[in-house]
Write a protein that binds this DNA or RNA. Structure first.
Length: 271
DNA sequence: ACTGGCTCCTGAGGGC
DNA sequence: TGCCCTCAGGAGCCAG
């Protein structure tokens, strides 16, 4: 599932193929994504140049002359640049056709993703307006988290996955970051000191940066029709490892569902 | 202001 | 070998 590192890896992969290109057509084969792909995308985007490829949380923002394409990959989405002549496979829902014979192709079997055409300032769009700071930016500090946690009784796991607190920290990397910081996922967020939040901010950064780094190594596959960047399970310390020994102390890693999400942690190392 | 539950969809994986 | 069933999962949305 595309978490923030995978989205950033995607952004870096598609950016060079898109920048400066003019869109010649948008072909929508399946408009029923999380929200319907509106006809305005196919009617307005062609003829415009692509000027930027940015990311906010797990959203990708393709900046064009007179609007922005907002893309979310949901949990099964992927974007690749392929020659437009390559026939679409199952679940290839949409092509943004470019003037060099390639296209940006969206595949999303579960259709939890979205493709929206925005003509106003993206930052003011409801999906983006109330997002918290980027986890890799300087705006995410221990003091910020400590202040936001004030009065909140929810588990820190739930707190971290609230996009209004931190933008785009998904289920997998939340477990990983809490493990690195030695914080139990069920601990109420208001009962964590600024010092421990400092460990957590460090854990978040190390986890995400490491994942982006390893994602970068498979980047060369991005313009190939069959290129599917692997999933980096071998880099995960606790996620998906219930019953396996904790990499730090050897105690069995435990899993449990917190707020409808499977969560992995070491009951000995995390308090 | 928070919090927890529901929802969309389909592939994967377990059981038999 | 193959079929059927269950369920995970991002995150917006809503009710309490």
């Amino acid at each position: 599932m595309p978490e923030l590192p995978e989205v950033e890896t995607t952004r870096r992969g598609i950016e060079p193929a898109l920048l400066g290109r003019t869109v010649t057509a948008v072909q929508v084969r399946q408009p029923a994504l999380r929200w319907p792909v509106t006809a305005s995308l196919a009617s307005q985007l062609p003829g415009q140049r692509l000027l930027s490829v940015a990311r906010r949380a797990k959203y990708l923002l393709l900046g064009a002359d007179e609007g922005t394409v907002l893309v979310h990959l949901g949990m099964s989405g992927s974007l690749r640049v392929v020659p437009h002549a390559v026939p679409p496979a199952a679940h290839d829902h949409l092509d943004v056709v470019l003037d060099d014979g390639h296209c940006l192709r969206l595949r999303d079997p579960r259709r939890f993703g979205c493709v929206l055409w925005l003509t106003d300032a993206p930052a003011e769009h409801p999906l983006l307006a109330s997002l918290g700071p980027e986890p890799l930016s300087a705006a995410l500090t221990a003091e910020f988290l400590h202040a936001r946690a004030r009065g909140r009784r929810a588990p820190v796991k739930t707190f971290l996955m609230d996009g209004r607190v931190v933008a785009g920290l998904g289920n997998i990397y939340t477990s990983e970051a809490l493990f690195r910081a030695g914080i139990h996922p069920l601990r109420p967020s208001s009962r964590i000191s600024t010092g421990r939040y400092r460990d957590l901010v460090r854990g978040i950064r190390h986890t995400l940066e490491g994942a982006i780094e390893s994602g970068g190594t498979s980047l060369r596959d991005f313009t190939r029709a069959d290129g599917t960047p692997g999933y980096f399970r071998q880099r995960l310390l606790v996620y998906g490892r219930a019953g396996e020994p904790c990499p730090r102390c050897g105690a069995p890693v435990r899993s449990r569902v917190i707020a409808q999400r499977s969560t992995f942690y070491c009951p000995r190392c995390q308090r």
